[in-house]
Simulated scan of single mutants.
Amino acid sequence: MNTYPNVSQTKELIKQLVSIPSPSGNTFKVIQFVENYLQDLNVETHRNRKGGLIATLPGVNNDEHRMLTAHVDTLGAMVKEIKSNGRLRLDLIGGFRYNSIEGEYCEIQTSGGNIFTGTILMHQTSVHVYKDAGDAKRNQQNMEVRIDAKVENAEDIRNLGIEVGDFVSFDPRVQMTDNGFIKSRHLDDKASVGILLQLIKRIKEENITLPHTTHFLISNNEEIGYGGNSNITPQTVEYLAVDMGAMGDGQSTDEYTVSICVKDASGPYHYALRTHLVNIAESNDIGYKLDIYPYYGSDASAAIRAGHDIIHGLVGPGIDSSHAFERTHETSLIHTENLLYHYLQSKILSY
């Protein structure tokens, strides 16, 4: 396997990314962070009307383009109701379960730009008061946000400027272990965004001219299903989503290799592109696993549904406990980046 030159930098970049709150619908700050990073590299960028960011590296062939995408939007919530007991009821953003956020610290961002901290709890949390503390359902009715402010009723909350529709983000609790693990919420998909940013930096530093003009879409609505279904140039032939590989019973994906998806809930990914990626991995001593994700969709599948005539694929680092307490290992970042590094320097196949 080729030496990965910036793994410590990539990990630090991922730490910075996951620490910027960005639930779907409120991604301005993280898009600004990515835009500033790319502009410092003198990379051409522009924003689409949805608020996503597109970076372009010119290539020798400007008639057949590639596009890679990763998303900075994350799971989160909105204030659904201001309760009479001085707490907040939530409405979830993205596909996850209430039990995965029980006990989590959070931030509430008001429309006026103020930030309040809080904790997401069961209403029936105290075992000294509630007999059903362990058995009550973890759902919208029973879970609430305890705000770190002196509030006793709905009027007190509104006096803080908190209102229905305010965004709620979850504390990422990011940790880097000495033996290479990265633990954090929102590695889906900020680990992949960090990889793409470091990949672009590597290409620029090594003065590599790509064989094809290549676009990088940093999308901001993937968790709600449509982040990457637009702004695809007519010249785009290959469209590769870089997103997490899902782990669990019956899965091949692990935390130490790059996952190459062959099928998800949207159906099979393009066979010839998948074969091309496997050949690149095997030719360059890159650890990979082929896998099927049964309850999964990507920006690449969203683009296919939108009617784009493209060759689509999906790869990414393996992530344990997706949409909950996520973890990966730096070796998965290494293999994913190296696969993309060699892929971008290959020529588009004749399909």
Rank of each mutant, 00 (worst) to 15 (best):
R202D: 14
K201M: 00
Y239G: 04
E223I: 10
G225M: 09
P234A: 09
A191K: 00
L196I: 00
N229A: 12
H215Y: 14
Y226R: 14
T236G: 08
G228S: 12
L210F: 00
T209G: 07
T209V: 14
A191V: 13
P211E: 06
E238F: 00
K201Q: 13
Q235N: 14
L217S: 11
G227T: 05
L196E: 00
N207K: 15
K204H: 00
N220C: 15
L196W: 01
E205L: 12
E238R: 04
H212K: 08
Y239F: 14
R202V: 00
E238V: 02
H212I: 07
I224K: 00
N220Y: 01
T233D: 15
N231K: 09
L196R: 04
K201A: 10
T214P: 10
H212N: 15
T213F: 04
N229G: 11
I208G: 07
T213V: 08
A191R: 02
L196C: 02
V237H: 10
G228V: 01
E206S: 13
I208D: 07
G227R: 04
L217R: 05
I218Q: 06
T213A: 03
G194V: 00
Q198W: 10
N231Y: 14
Q235A: 12
L210G: 07
T214E: 10
G227V: 07
K204L: 03
L199Q: 06
N221D: 15
I200W: 01
K201C: 03
Y226M: 13
I218G: 08
F216Q: 03
K190A: 09
I232R: 10
D189P: 08
L196A: 03
E238W: 05
T236H: 10
E222P: 05
S192E: 15
G228N: 06
Q235R: 10
E205R: 09
L187G: 02
P234S: 09
G228I: 08
Q235K: 15
N220K: 02
T213I: 02
T209D: 13
T213D: 02
V237K: 14
T236N: 09
E238A: 00
G227P: 02
P211W: 06
V193N: 05
F216V: 00
G225H: 04
V193P: 05
I203A: 04
N220H: 10
L217Q: 14
P211G: 06
E205Q: 14
A191I: 10
D189S: 15
G227N: 05
L210M: 03
N220L: 03
L217Y: 11
T213R: 09
V193Y: 06
I224N: 05
I218F: 15
